[in-house]
Simulated scan of single mutants.
Amino acid sequence: MKVKANGIDIEVEDTGGSGEPLLLIMGLGCQLVHWPPYFVQPLVEAGYRVIRLDNRDIGLSQYFPQFGRPNPTWGGLMLALGRELPAPYTLGDMAADALGVLDALGIARAHVAGASMGGMIAQRLALAAPERVRSLVSIMSSSGARGLPRPEPHVVRALLARPRGGTREALLRYYVELYRTIGGPSYDQPEADLRAAIEVSLDRAQNPDGMLRQLRAIMADTRRAGELARMRVPTLVLHGREDPLVPVNCGADTARRIPDSRYVVIERMGHALPPSVSRPLVAEMLPFLRAHPIEAAEPALAA
């Protein structure tokens, strides 16, 4: 369903029910369907009202073609030179979108979990509106601090590659190879299942320029690392030992910067959510969420 959030149209899927709300925010270029059913369903079965959204400029949410197609190479050069990097919108704007989703659904307070860029947005949300975030789970994400480890060279090559041909099969093969690369050496998702998931996302929506605009928002968010020291939301940081895209030390850095956060490294996890990774992630999340319940007396927002 579409909701009006922060003045724009955001696509939302809400499992409903009377359980404590848990907002899931996905990463760069990823749609809400990239939270796989085997990750979502155990959370629902544990009693949580799971809410997923398409971030702006991706999926079925509102696009921003008027801002054009940013050049990531130029953006990287500006950052290397220490220049301010203009962006069509910010991670703070995307956090305001997520907050607007809670407003539209009448939710006063929620647990928030974000993966990769979604973890960065979740951090921004917790900084901007801590009274609305009962707990934060930052998954395979980063503080964005300067000097952190960068993606491994073979991952950069995979990210910069292009499909070999213009057919749908070529596009599918490109994404299969990319996901296997960022998934790390222990990635074990069967190819048939991976292809089926990719086809769902391709059939649902495609907006590659939107992904580049989201990337620019990440690149321009250079001050968040220094702001995390004032975080007062209970936080669980989960990161994969084998993450080749956002190396594990990025998770350690995030946890170090957020006061009283809990840090857990998931063995054999890269930068993906196959079943073998989703199970230990959910197993870490559920006790953490239960340890920080939303008080039953907290009122809902007026519709």
Score class of each variant (00 low, 15 high):
V3C: 06
K4E: 15
E11N: 14
L23A: 04
L23D: 00
L23C: 11
C30D: 10
P37S: 13
V44S: 02
E45Y: 06
R49Y: 06
L53C: 12
L53P: 00
G59E: 00
L60V: 09
Q62R: 06
W74M: 15
G75H: 02
L79Q: 14
L79K: 14
E84Y: 14
L85R: 06
L85A: 09
T90C: 13
D93K: 04
V101P: 00
I107S: 00
H111Y: 12
V112M: 09
G114H: 08
M117C: 14
Q123M: 03
L125Q: 04
L125I: 14
A129P: 03
P130A: 10
R132H: 15
S135W: 00
A145Y: 07
A145V: 10
V156N: 09
A161T: 11
R164Y: 03
A170S: 11
Y174R: 09
E177W: 05
D188Q: 10
D188M: 11
D188F: 05
Q189D: 12
P208Q: 10
P208M: 05
L215S: 13
I218F: 03
A225G: 09
L238Q: 01
H239N: 10
R241I: 11
R256M: 15
I266R: 00
P274C: 03
V282N: 01
F288L: 12
P299L: 11
A300F: 13
A303K: 07
